[in-house]
Design a protein around this nucleic acid. Structure first.
Length: 730
DNA sequence: ATCGTCATAATTTTT
DNA sequence: TTATGACGAT
C-alpha cells in the first residue's frame, strides 16, 4: 500500500506519531491538534502499510460516540468495513470478554448489567436490610465508596481495615453488596472492568490468547483512564508492549471520578524507552484565544508542558462582560447570539457553557422569550427514563428470574396489590436464606408464609412473568417487548391516564418497541437477541432526545463540552466560588482541575470567545455578591476587551422578575420553536376571552397543534391552535 | 395505595 | 429555587 495516502495532509508531528515504530508511544495532543485524526491514521497505517490484520487491533475509547466515530472514520479511510477489529469503550470491551468467558469469570450466562441508578437503589435496600441507618450510610456515598475501591482493583475483602468503626461498616456493606450481586447475577459498571481484569490476571491461557491476538492496542483520552483501566491495558499489552496512547494532561477534568492523570507519567516509567510526541499546532482557534487559554493553564504547576500555537491569524480579542446579575448576563449573551443570527450565522454556531447545570435556567428563559430555539445537553437519556426501565426490568426478569433489582422494580409496578409489607417479608426470606427475591417469593407462596390475599397477588405476579417468558418467541425481540407492554399492563396503565406526563410515557414505551424493531443484532457475541438488547440498553443509554439537525443554540456544562468546538463560545458565570467551584478551592489539586476545565472551555472556541461574570448572582433562591473568577485575571490584559455593562442598572433588568418572569415558571426543554402561523415559543398572543399572554410550550403540529399560554390574568392554559383563534400581538 | 406536606440538599458524568 | 424523598393522613 502507498504510505503517502495515509501521511498526506499531516503535519510533521502528526506524521511522526502515525508512523512511529512499534512499541510504547505516547502522543500528547493539545486541544484541537488533531488527536483523533492521528489515532485513525495510525490504525490505517498499521493495517495498510504495516500489514497488520484488523483482528490484531484493539482500540479503546471512553464513550460509545467516540468509538462509533472512530470505526466510521477508519472504514472511510480504508474504504472498506473493518472486520475483526475491536473498537469500543472500556466497558463495552470488558463486557464482551465477560460474555465470551462467563464461566471463567464465574458469572451466570445470562448476567445483567445495572446502571448507577440501579446500583444506588439496590444498595439502599441492602443497607436497610442490614438494619443500618441510611442517614449514616447514604446509599449514594456508599456506592461511591464501593466504586472507588473497585476502580482501584480492590474487592471488599481487600479493603484495608481502618480503625474507624464506621468505615468498617462501609466495608461490610460492600461485602454484602458483592455477595448479593453475585447471587442475583448482576454486574455494575465498575464490576465489568474489575471482573475482566481479574479474569485476565488469573487465567494464564486467556491472557496469553488475548495478548497474542491484540498486537496493536490504541487508547483515546488516555488522561481519563483510572487505575483499573490502566492495569487492564498493561495486562493486555504485557508481551509486545505495543501501546499507542493519545491524551492531554491539560484536559484532564475527571479526576473526581477516578481518572488518574498520573497514568501519563506512569506510562513513561512503566514503558522505558516509550516515545513521546507532542502535538502543539492547533487547527481550531485563532491566536488570541489560544494565547489566552495558554496564559490561564500556565498557572498550573503540575503539567507536562505544552504550548499551543496556530498559524491562523490573531483574530478577535477575548471579550469580557461584567454583568450586574445573572439575568443581565443572560440578556447580554442572548443579545450577542441574536446579533450573529442577524448576521446570517447559524444558531448552532453558538454555545453557552457553564460550570453547573443549574445555571442554564436563566439562559433558557431568555432564549424562550427571544424566540430562539436551543438545546440543553445533559438530561435523562432514553434508556434511563423510568417507564423504559420498568419495561426493561420485565424483560430482564424474563431472562434472569434472580435479578433482584428488576424484581423490586416491577413487583408492584403497575400496582397489583403487593404492598410494602409483603415485599418486606419476601426480602427477609431472601436474606435469611441467601436466595433471590424470586425464589423467596415462590417459597413464601408455597409455604403459606403470607396472608392469603398477598399470597394470591404474589402468585399472580410470578405466573405473569412465567407466562410472559413462555409466550415469548426466542427470535422475536419486538414481540417480546410487545408481550411485556401488554401483559404487564404498563401501556394500558399510562394510556388510561390523560395527563401530559402519562402521554409522554406512552410515547416513550412505543418508542421502545421501535427501538427493539430497529435493533441490529450481532450474533457473533454468543448472546441471545434479548440479552444483547438489554446489554445494549445498559451500556448505551441512548442519544439525548432532541433533533440534532435542528439549528439550535447549544447549552451545556463545561464537562459536556469537552471534545466539541463552536465558532462562538460564551463562558459564563466566571465567578469565584462558582468557577472555580467553592468545593474545589481549598485543595491545590482540585483547583488545578478547575483551571483545566477553564482551559477546556476556552479552547472550544474557534473565532469568538466571550467570558462573563455577574456582580451579583441569585443561586438557590438567595442573592449573593460575587467576585470575578481568578481565571479572568490570569488572562493577560492585552488579550481581552472589557465590554462595559451599559450604564447603571436599567429598569428592563431590574423589573424583569415580575410578570414576565413568572410566565416562565416551568420552562420546558424543547428544541423546536416555530409552531404554526407565526406563533413561536415566546410569542405574545391575544385570546378573545383570556386576554394577553405568552406562549411557553407547545406540542404537535399543524391542525392538531396545541400551545401552552401563560395569560397575564387567566393563568396557564393549554389551547388547541385550530380553535383558539390566537392573535399574535407585537 | 395514593396524595399531600415537610425537610433537605443542591458541582461536574460516562459506562 | 427546586427537586427529591420520607412520612403521615385519607
Amino acid at each position: 500500500m502507498d504510505p503517502s495516502l495515509i501521511l498526506d495532509g499531516l503535519n510533521d508531528a502528526q506524521r511522526e506519531a502515525v508512523c512511529a515504530p512499534d512499541g510504547a508511544n505516547l502522543v500528547l495532543a493539545g486541544a484541537g491538534s488533531g488527536k483523533t485524526r492521528v489515532l485513525i491514521h495510525r490504525i490505517a497505517w498499521d493495517i495498510d502499510v504495516m500489514g497488520a490484520s484488523p483482528f490484531s487491533i484493539l482500540a479503546v475509547t471512553f464513550t460509545n460516540k467516540a468509538a462509533a466515530e472512530m470505526r466510521g472514520r477508519v472504514e472511510n479511510m480504508l474504504n472498506q468495513p473493518v472486520q475483526g477489529m475491536w473498537i469500543g469503550t472500556f466497558h463495552g470491551l470488558c463486557h464482551r470478554l465477560l460474555r465470551q468467558h462467563w464461566k471463567e469469570a464465574a458469572l451466570p450466562q445470562g448476567f445483567q448489567i445495572i446502571d448507577s441508578e440501579d446500583q444506588v437503589r439496590y444498595l439502599k435496600r441492602l443497607i436497610r436490610g442490614l438494619e443500618l441507618d441510611e442517614a449514616y450510610y447514604p446509599p449514594r456515598q456508599v456506592a461511591g465508596f464501593i466504586n472507588h475501591h473497585k476502580e482501584e482493583g480492590r474487592r471488599a475483602a481487600a479493603v484495608p481495615l481502618a480503625r474507624d468503626p464506621k468505615y468498617a461498616e462501609w466495608v461490610r456493606i460492600y461485602q454484602t453488596y458483592e455477595d448479593a450481586c453475585q447471587r442475583a447475577g448482576i454486574v455494575d459498571f465498575a464490576e465489568l472492568l474489575l471482573r475482566a481484569w481479574e479474569m485476565l490476571k488469573s487465567s494464564e491461557p486467556l491472557r496469553a490468547h488475548y495478548q497474542k491476538r491484540f498486537q496493536h492496542i490504541l487508547v483515546d483520552e488516555f488522561q481519563d483512564t483510572n487505575s483499573i483501566q490502566y492495569s487492564w491495558l498493561r495486562l493486555l499489552a504485557g508481551g509486545h508492549k505495543n501501546l499507542f496512547v493519545v491524551g492531554d494532561d491539560d484536559q484532564s477534568i475527571y479526576g473526581w471520578r477516578g481518572a488518574k492523570v498520573e497514568n501519563i507519567l506512569k506510562f513513561e516509567r512503566d514503558y522505558p524507552g516509550a516515545k513521546t510526541v507532542r502535538l502543539e499546532q492547533n487547527y481550531r482557534s485563532t491566536g488570541n484565544i489560544l494565547k489566552a487559554a495558554n496564559a490561564v493553564i500556565d498557572n498550573n504547576d503540575t503539567r507536562l508542558g505544552k504550548n499551543l500555537w496556530t498559524d491562523a491569524g490573531e483574530g478577535e480579542k477575548v471579550r469580557l462582560y461584567a454583568a450586574y446579575n445573572e439575568v443581565d448576563e443572560a440578556r447580554y449573551v442572548v443579545d450577542q447570539i441574536q446579533k450573529s443570527v442577524d448576521d446570517n450565522r447559524r444558531r448552532d454556531e453558538s454555545a453557552i457553557l457553564y460550570r453547573s447545570n443549574a445555571q442554564s435556567r436563566v439562559f433558557e428563559e431568555l432564549l424562550i422569550s427571544a424566540g430562539m430555539p436551543y438545546r440543553v445537553y445533559g438530561g435523562l437519556r432514553f434508556f434511563e427514563r423510568a417507564e423504559i426501565k420498568d419495561a426493561l426490568a420485565y424483560l430482564r426478569l424474563m431472562t434472569n428470574r434472580d435479578d433482584d433489582v428488576s424484581f423490586e422494580r416491577v413487583v408492584n409496578t403497575p400496582t397489583r396489590g403487593i404492598g410494602n409489607r409483603t415485599v418486606e417479608i419476601i426480602r427477609d426470606i431472601a436474606r435469611n436464606n441467601s436466595i433471590s427475591m424470586w425464589r423467596a417469593a415462590s417459597q413464601a407462596v408455597n409455604n403459606k408464609l403470607l396472608p392469603a390475599r398477598a399470597a394470591n397477588a404474589v402468585n399472580t405476579f410470578l405466573e405473569l412473568i412465567d407466562s410472559m417468558a413462555a409466550e415469548r418467541n426466542e427470535d422475536d425481540l419486538e414481540g417480546a417487548v410487545n408481550i411485556v407492554l401488554e401483559y404487564s399492563t404498563l401501556l394500558e396503565h399510562y394510556k388510561s391516564d390523560k395527563s401530559e406526563k402519562a402521554q409522554a410515557k406512552t410515547e416513550n414505551l412505543e418508542e421502545l418497541l421501535s427501538a427493539a424493531r430497529m435493533f441490529e443484532f450481532d450474533e457473533e457475541e454468543g448472546l441471545g437477541e434479548l440479552d444483547a438488547f438489554l446489554s445494549h440498553a445498559a451500556l448505551e443509554a441512548g442519544e439525548q432526545q432532541g433533533a440534532e439537525w435542528d439549528d439550535c443554540v447549544q447549552l451545556m456544562s463545561l464537562h459536556s463540552a469537552k471534545g466539541l468546538e463552536f465558532p462562538q463560545v460564551f463562558l459564563t458565570g466566571m465567578e469565584e466560588e462558582l468557577f472555580p467551584h467553592r468545593n474545589s478551592m481549598s485543595d491545590a489539586g482540585k483547583l488545578e482541575e478547575e483551571r483545566r476545565l477553564c482551559y477546556v472551555g476556552m479552547t472550544r472556541a474557534r473565532e469568538q470567545l466571550f467570558l462573563s461574570y455577574a456582580e451579583s448572582r441569585r443561586l438557590y433562591g438567595q442573592t449573593h455578591p460575587a467576585r470575578p473568577s481568578r481565571f479572568i485575571d490570569e488572562i493577560t490584559e492585552e488579550l481581552r476587551d472589557r465590554v462595559r455593562a451599559a450604564g447603571p442598572a436599567r429598569s428592563g433588568i431590574v423589573g424583569y422578575g415580575g410578570a414576565a418572569a413568572s410566565a416562565f415558571a416551568s420552562p420546558m426543554r424543547k428544541t423546536g420553536v416555530e409552531v404554526a402561523n407565526g406563533i413561536k415559543l415566546g410569542s405574545r398572543v391575544r385570546h378573545a376571552k383570556f386576554g394577553d399572554g405568552m406562549v411557553t410550550n407547545y406540542e404537535g403540529s399543524g391542525e392538531s397543534a396545541r400551545v401552552q399560554v401563560n395569560f397575564e390574568f387567566a393563568g396557564q392554559k393549554w389551547l388547541v391552535l385550530a380553535f383558539a383563534n390566537l392573535e399574535v400581538v407585537s
